[in-house]
Design a protein around this nucleic acid. Structure first.
Lengths: 245, 245
DNA sequence: CAGTGGTCTAGACCACAGT
DNA sequence: CTGTGGTCTAGACCACTGT
């Protein structure tokens, strides 16, 4: 039974289970462990690393949740025969693109404090007429328009008045203001572009677009933001890994 | 601190943590606990229910993963201010629709054992030319065409030759044959319908469609199925709940 | 049968948030 | 400071799988 080298630093502030998961994940990505390989059982791992079994379980569970490992009772734990794609996380498109090294720019079409219409109000769970910030942007990647993004943020959450959204993403801003997004509900669909949208996104009129509606909640369970985004399907797709538990 | 009534049955085969999570979830859905409510702390719960703290944690974690609760260190655990939608699970459209009480029918357009083309072979991780079952269906809801579904299943996984897919879903079939889907990778996008697709789905030519590509892996990490589906965006959208951990 | 993961206990110490 | 969740230990028994 192959056991990749795992070294723990007990003086590190990084939790033990996370250190284990990290190094196991690297072993899989580097190909030290390949599809279908069975890894040693939990007890053996715990023994070898000098951690308790629950801690080792937690490490393995992290990778199971990421879709990289599969557990079968009475059998063992195996590496999934699958190309590892990024799992869906609670990040913004801006973060995604910057991380992958693309040059992104943003055109701000609209930023204003307005009374909430029925749509945004319903989604944010606030009364119609509540002051909300309305933000509309076009996101470009290497010059090409990629997404047309409309967002609403209740004025009670934070003040967007002085923010330069050509330089800062909305989610990045939330982080700097200690607003921690924790849960989001998304609906993804498709529809045809209208005249304005096709012009802004540089596609033909009546071309297909990917639509994404999202409401995000922070760590006190409060609705913080509603997004209504349109993506060019030739430049963007939505990838997820599903895991049955 | 409000604590809904939770009753445990220690003789039940249902794990304790699951019994707790179930009843807590019901309390939230029934409105006994509402958005923003703080629930009692883990130790108090464990004490009252007579279970250990790790068990209670596991119960709460289940609901956190579902996006119904939010934990904050030093503060407590709160109910998320969000409409509860179904979280994404590893189920088929057929299951989804049957569960919501709709009348679904299926037209089988094609079911054949063929050598794998490059596309399906790549996705399934098998050599080009490997025998695979090719299945093409139209799913209807209350008579209306909803989805055009093309699936590929390696012949080595199971025999689809005698299956009546007008009466049985593919995922349902897998379950009856003890093939347990555990991980899937999905890509969701949009494109225009071509002539054949628009005819089969009952939409205008060059109408927008939602596309879904999915590869599923079973509990030994083996690629079991590749799906290439097209959905009518007026009848179907893809909803998810994202949770940051 | 032996080996595996699934569940559970009864504690412990720590980091962080709010008072 | 107190109270909270985050991490961790060192065991235990059980259910399921494959031989």
């Amino acid at each position: 039974m192959f056991q990749p080298q795992v070294v723990l630093d007990r003086s590190s502030p990084v939790p033990l289970y996370f250190q284990v998961a990290e190094q196991l994940e690297r072993a899989i990505r580097d190909g030290d462990l390949v599809a279908g390989d069975r890894i040693a059982n939990e007890v053996a791992w715990a023994d070898q690393l000098g951690v308790s079994r629950p801690t080792m379980r937690q490490a393995i569970q992290l990778l199971v949740d990421k879709g990289m490992l599969v557990r079968k009772r009475g059998v063992g734990t195996q590496v999934v025969q699958a190309p590892i794609r990024r799992t869906v996380e609670l990040t913004s498109l801006y973060d995604d693109l910057r991380r992958t090294g693309h040059h992104t720019t943003t055109d701000v079409l609209d930023l204003a404090l307005v009374p909430a219409d029925e749509g945004p109000a319903t989604r944010l769970g606030c009364p119609v007429g509540t002051p909300v910030w309305r933000l509309e942007r076009v996101r470009r990647v290497d010059g090409q328009p990629l997404a047309l993004m409309r967002n609403h943020v209740p004025a009670s959450v934070t003040d967007l008045g002085d923010v330069d959204f050509t330089a800062t993403g909305l989610y990045e801003l939330f982080r700097t203001r200690a607003i921690h997004l924790r849960v989001a509900h998304q609906t993804i669909c498709a529809r045809l572009a209208d005249r304005r949208e096709s012009r802004l996104l540089g596609v033909k009129v009546a071309d297909a677009l990917l639509t994404m509606e999202r409401t995000s909640y922070d760590d006190s369970g409060r609705a913080v933001e509603h997004a209504d985004h349109l993506y060019r399907p030739d430049l963007y797709s939505y990838e997820t890994t599903l895991v049955d538990r």
